[in-house]
Design a protein around this nucleic acid. Structure first.
Lengths: 170, 170
DNA sequence: GGAAAGTTGCTTAGCGCTAAGCTACTTTCT
DNA sequence: AGAAAGTAGCTTAGCGCTAAGCAACTTTCC
């Protein structure tokens, strides 16, 4: 189908071939994309974990700190806003906040306007940690992406945006 | 940078803009790719779970059944082969096999040549379930991929293969 | 040939997430 | 205005995965 000269077979190609042998009736074209997307997520996840570990935090914890950092001064959000942004249940968020508060990277304080509510704020220490970690994480991603030249990388980003947009609101 | 007429902003674009505001020094180009890859994995994961749930199994359980199915007759592998293929620890595999055996989808039997070993075999019921589930899963993926025309989908698959290859052995 | 080291195999303890539950505020109806 | 229903907010119980541990076979060295 493609006139590309020679592209090395990868693990996904092997799986697709196996299916073609035992179930030749299946249309496995979509696996070519989503199989690789899944594997990329897995492989990069491992590397990101290691990058963040140098700052003493896990990936999930990084996500919390980064969300606060991105929100700008005064680096304050509610647990509800955090769990919504990270597509996490409030239960999972409670656990992460516990750990981060114990580590002194953020602080929980009551919301003055809503006696039910809480406000979560980055500490100075947390700010330092997240700034270090985000740089380390981006370095890992940038290194991995260097497998593609800039033009092909931009093309890939555009195709992914298009696919994601079509996927998120059908 | 791109001359593309108008591409709608997505969640990843928004995150990148936030970073540009608070940390304009960061090079966030790689996020354009890996941020979207991660979100795609998350979104498709949810849908695949629902597709497999119709056959009464989880995604992890599907992976086990599919690996056995793909291996061809007599649909038999060792727990070790399964955990290696699925990049899972043997502990995680024990739990999955327990559930699947209880559901009657596979059978554990002693290896006649190795008194330590075990052989895992798909039952007739398991074969039926996995054949139903793989079709349902592929339908979900194919539907999602239809956001791109065939040519762009193939291009995306090639770019991903290239990136993955460069990523997995650097 | 035997024994010790190494390899492969599988089941049990700790961590993190989802689901259920409880409290506090808000809104609406009379 | 008062009360009841609804909504938003957060901490506690069950499930699944990784890490540590124990058993059986194989290989290698003397």
């Amino acid at each position: 189908m493609s006139e590309r000269p020679e592209q090395r077979k990868d693990a996904v190609d092997a799986i697709i071939e196996q299916w073609a042998t035992v179930r030749p009736d299946l249309d496995t074209a979509a696996m070519e994309v989503f199989g690789r997307v899944g594997r990329l997520t897995l492989a990069m996840g491992d590397r990101m974990d290691k990058a963040y570990a140098k700052s003493g935090i896990s990936r999930g914890e990084f996500d919390v700190l980064a969300t606060l950092r991105r929100s700008g001064e005064p680096y304050t959000l509610s647990p509800r806003q955090l769990s919504a942004t990270l597509m996490l249940t409030t239960g999972g968020m409670t656990g992460r906040l516990d750990k981060l508060e114990r580590a002194g990277l953020l602080r929980r304080s009551p919301d003055p306007h809503d006696r039910r509510g809480l406000r979560v704020t980055l500490t100075d220490k947390g700010l330092g940690v997240v700034d270090e970690a985000v740089a380390a994480g981006l370095a890992v991603q940038t290194e991995a992406l260097s497998a593609l030249d800039a033009e092909r990388a931009a093309l890939l980003a555009d195709l992914l945006r298009e696919l994601l947009a079509g996927t998120e609101r059908p």
